[in-house]
Amino acid sequence: KAVLCADHGEKLQLFCQEDGKVICWLCERSQEHRGHHTFLVE
């Protein structure tokens, strides 16, 4: 069962290295995470 983003309802499948947390693809494109290094997690 996928864990969903509290903000967007999308699957949490990216790890943001700068923030040390898992985010969704919409979070990654938001101003908050712009320019951060993210990695796909399974």
Results as ranks from 00 to 15, higher is better:
Gln17Asn: 06
Lys1Ala: 05
Cys24Glu: 01
Phe15Arg: 09
Trp25Ile: 11
Gln17Gly: 04
Cys27Ser: 00
Ala6Arg: 11
Leu4Val: 12
Phe39Trp: 08
Lys11Pro: 15
Lys11Phe: 09
Leu4Gln: 05
Val41Glu: 12
Phe15Met: 11
His37Ile: 11
Lys11Asn: 12
Trp25Ala: 14
Ile23Val: 07
Ser30Pro: 01
Ile23Ser: 02
Glu42Tyr: 03
Ile23Gly: 04
Leu14Phe: 10
Leu40Asp: 13
His36Ser: 04
Gln13Val: 08
Val3Ile: 08
Ala2Tyr: 08
Cys16Met: 02
Glu10Cys: 07
Ser30Ile: 15
Ala2Thr: 14
Glu10His: 03
His33Leu: 05
Gln31Asn: 11
Cys5Gly: 01
Cys27Asn: 02
His37Phe: 14
Leu4Ser: 06
Phe39Asp: 06
Gln17His: 06
Arg29Val: 05
Val41Trp: 10
Asp7Arg: 10
Arg34Gly: 07
Trp25Gly: 11
His36Trp: 01
Leu4Cys: 07
Arg29Pro: 03
Ser30Met: 12
Ser30Ala: 11
Gln17Ala: 09
Glu18Gln: 08
Arg29Phe: 03
Lys21Gly: 06
Leu12Glu: 09
Leu12Ala: 15
Lys11Arg: 10
Leu4Ala: 07
Lys21Leu: 05
Ser30Asp: 12
Leu26Tyr: 11
Cys16Glu: 07
Phe15Glu: 08
Gln31Val: 12
Gln13Asn: 15
Val41Cys: 07
Ile23Arg: 04
Leu4Arg: 09
Glu18Leu: 00
Ile23Asn: 09
Phe39Tyr: 14
Gly9Asp: 09
Gln17Glu: 13
Lys1Asn: 05
Leu40Lys: 08
Asp7Ser: 12
Asp19Glu: 14
Gly20Thr: 08
Glu18Ile: 04
His36Lys: 02
His33Thr: 01
Leu26Ser: 10
Glu28Ala: 06
Ile23Trp: 02
Gln13Tyr: 06
Leu12Phe: 09
Phe15Asp: 04
Ser30Lys: 04
Lys1Trp: 01
Gly9Trp: 05
His36Met: 02
Ser30Phe: 02
Arg29Trp: 02
Leu4Lys: 08
Lys21Arg: 13
Val41Asn: 12
Lys21Tyr: 11
Glu18Val: 06
Gly9Ser: 10
His36Asn: 02
Trp25Asn: 14
Arg29Gln: 07
Cys5Ser: 01
Lys21Val: 13
Glu10Arg: 11
Cys24Phe: 08
Gly20His: 06
Leu14Thr: 09
Cys5Gln: 00
Val3Leu: 03
Glu18Met: 14
Gln13Cys: 03
Leu14Gln: 11
Leu40Glu: 12
Ala6Gln: 09
Val3Asp: 05
Ala6Ser: 13
Gln17Thr: 09
Leu12Thr: 09
Cys27Val: 00
Val3Arg: 05
Trp25Leu: 11
Arg29Glu: 09
Ala2Ser: 12
Arg29Tyr: 06
Arg29Ile: 06
